[in-house]
Design a protein around this nucleic acid. Structure first.
Lengths: 198, 198, 198, 198
DNA sequence: TATGAATGAGTATTCATTCAT
DNA sequence: GATGAATGAATACTCATTCAT
C-alpha cells in the first residue's frame, strides 16, 4: 500500500525535476520562478515545498541527476567500445562527454563549470559507496596500468582532474568561445591526457 | 579641468567597486543589493546607475579587476624568481596562484571557477591587445622551447588550459574539499604540468 | 468499552494541549503552526481537527486550563494557611499568584493580560456552576464581612477587579518592566486591596 | 527645501497610520494586509516599508498615538472641569476614559487590554520627558495631597494602577460582558479609587 | 477513527529602476 | 552630475484545511 504512495511521490518529484530542467534550459535558472516549475509539473505551488527546500536545493539535485546521467552514458559507451590501451579508453570516455556537450550546449550552459565528479562522489559517500556506476568505473577504469603506480585515492584524483579539465575547457570554448574553438582545443586536451597517463 | 572631473569619476567608480567587493566577499553576490553597495560607497542609489548598467555589469568589471590583479602578481613574482627551465617558471606561476587562493578562500569563493584567462583576454581584445601585462606574459612565458613546436595561438591555448585547470581544482579542493586536500592535489597538478610541457 | 475509547480520546486531546503549551511557551502562539503541534503530539495533522476547530479554539481551552490551574493552586494554598482576617486571606491568594508569575514569566507572557476570572466564569456557566473550585471559593472567600455589605454578584465583581488588577500589573511590571519592578508594585497593590476590602 | 520633503514624509506616514486605523477597526488587525493599508493610503506597497518595519511596528506606533490621544482628551476635559477635591478629579479623568470606551467599543477592541500608561511613558523617556502632556499631568494631577505622602515615582505607579485597572475592567465588561455590565462595575471602580486615594 | 499528501489562496518582503528636484 | 523618495512588479514561502485512503 505504502509502496504505491512512495511510487507516486517519486513520480511527482521527477515531474518537478523534469519541469525545472525544461524551464532552466529554456530561460535560465534565475529567470525561472518556483511558481512556473510547479505549474509546469501540474502541481500546486505548496507541493513544491514538500519535495524541495527551495530552488537551490532542487538545482543541486537536478545537477547531480544530470551529471550522473552523462557520466553513466559516457561509461557505458566506453564499455561497449573497449580498447586494449587504457589511455585510449580514458580518451573515449572524455570524448563522449565533450561530444555530448558540443551537441547539448544548453545542458552545458546549465551545468556551467560545475559538471564534476564531486557531485558524483558526494552521492557515493551518501550511499555508502554502493552506487553501481561508481563500482563499475572503479573496477574498470582503475584496474589499469596506473594501479601499480598509485593507490586508489590518487587514481581517482587523477581522473577527477581530467574530468574537471574537460568540463571547464568545454564551457570556455563552447559557450564563451575562448580561447579557441572546441575543435582546436580537443587535440590539445587529448595530448594532455595521453602524456599524463603514460 | 575635465581631467579633474574624470579623476573624481574614476574615484567614485572605484569606491563602488571596492564597496561591492567587500560586500560580495562578506555575504555573497546574490544577497548583496545595489542599495547596500551604494550606501557603503557613500553615494546615492541613483548614482550607481551613472557608472554601471546593473549589478551584473559591475560584477564583470570587478571579476576582471581581481583576475587581472592576481595574474599580474603571479607574473611579477615569477619574473623576480626566474629559473632557467621554462616549465619551472610555469610552475612558479601556477604555485603563486594556488598559494594565493589557499590564503584567500573568500576571494576564491567569489571568483568560483570563473577565474580564468578569458576575462583577461576579453579586455585584451577591448584594448586592441595593448595590455602591457599581456605583452609581458606573451613575450616572457611564450618565448620558450614551445615556440618551436607551435604557433602563438596554440601556446596560449596550452597555458589557458593550465590556468583553467588550476583554478578549477583549487575551487573543488579548497572550497568543496573534493576530491582531496589541495596539498595532495598539488603534486598531481605539477606532474601534469611538467609532463605536458615537456 | 466506550469508556476506554473516551479515555483514549481524552489522552490524545491532552497530548495536543500539552504539545501546544510547550510550543506556545517556546516560540509564541503566532509562530507556532498546527503542523508543529500535531507533530509534537505525535498525531497526524488531520487528527488535530478531530479535537479542535482551529488554533484559536485550542488556545482558549489551553488558557482556561492554565488559569483554572493557577487559581486552584492559589486557593489551596490560601486554605492551608488560613488567617482570621478576611483581607489577609485575599492577600495570601493574590500573593501566591504574583509569586507564581514572577517565577513563571513564560506563562505570564503566554497568558498576557488575559489571565482572568472571566475564563473561569465562562466554564462555570458551562458547567451550570457545578465547578467544585468555584463552589469552594464562593463558600470560603465570600462568606466574609463583605457578605453583610453586598450581594453575591457584587462580591464576585469586587474579587474580579482584584484579580484583573493583579494580572494586569504583573504583566506590565514583570514583562514590560513598567512602571516599576514588581517588588515596588506589590506594596501598592496590597495597600489597594486592604483599603478596598475594609 | 528639505523641510518640505520632511513635511510630505510626515503626511504620508500619517496617511498610512490613518488607513491602518480605519482598516484595523473595520476588520481587525490580523485580517488586514499590508497591501490593503498601502492601497487605502494611496501609496505603493513598497512605500509602506520606507516608513515601518512591518505590521507590528505600525501597530505599536498606532496604539501609542491612540492611547496618547485618549489620555490627552481625558486630561483636557478634567482641566476644564476642575474640582477642589483631588480624588474627584481623578474620577473625572477615569470617567472620561470609561465613557469614551463605552462609546467607542471598536477602539477598545483594537487596544484590547493594552491601553496603558506604559505606552505613554515609553515615549516620555524617548523624548527625554519633554512631552508637554506628561508635564501637564505631572504638574496638575500629582501636585496633590498625595504629594506629601509619597515621592513622584510612587504617585505615578499609583495612577498607573488606576488607569490599568480601568482599561482592563472596561475590556472585560464592555467587550466580553464579564463579570457584569460596565454600569454595574463603575460604582465599584469609583469606590476603589476613592478609598485608595484617601 | 486516523492519516498525511495535496492544495492554493494569501502575505510579506525585496529591489532594480525611475525621475522630479 | 547627484540625489533618494517612490514605485510596483515579482517572488518566495506559509499554513489552515480538505479528502482519498
Amino acid at each position: 500500500m505504502g509502496e504505491r504512495i512512495d511510487q507516486k511521490k517519486e513520480i511527482k518529484k521527477n515531474n518537478l525535476l523534469n519541469a525545472a530542467q525544461t524551464l532552466f534550459l529554456e530561460k535560465g535558472v534565475s529567470k525561472t520562478s518556483i511558481s512556473e516549475i510547479a505549474e509546469r509539473a501540474s502541481v500546486a505551488k505548496g507541493t513544491f515545498y514538500l519535495y524541495f527546500d527551495d530552488k537551490d536545493d532542487l538545482l543541486q539535485q537536478l545537477l547531480y541527476r544530470i551529471s550522473h546521467d552523462i557520466i553513466r552514458q559516457a561509461f557505458d559507451y566506453t564499455e561497449r567500445n573497449l580498447k586494449p590501451e587504457f589511455e585510449e579508453n580514458v580518451i573515449t570516455f572524455a570524448d563522449w562527454i565533450i561530444v555530448y556537450f558540443t551537441e547539448h550546449t544548453d545542458m552545458l550552459r546549465l551545468i556551467k563549470r560545475n559538471f564534476s565528479w564531486p557531485l558524483i562522489e558526494r552521492s557515493l559517500s551518501a550511499n555508502g559507496g554502493s552506487d553501481p556506476l561508481w563500482h563499475a568505473i572503479a573496477g574498470r577504469l582503475l584496474a589499469t596500468p596506473l594501479a601499480s603506480v598509485s593507490n586508489a585515492q590518487e587514481r581517482f584524483n587523477l581522473l577527477f582532474i581530467v574530468v574537471e579539465m574537460c568540463g571547464s575547457v568545454c564551457y570556455s570554448s563552447i559557450i564563451e568561445h575562448r580561447p579557441d574553438t572546441i575543435d582546436h582545443m580537443k587535440p590539445l586536451l587529448y595530448t594532455f591526457i595521453r602524456k599524463v597517463l603514460r
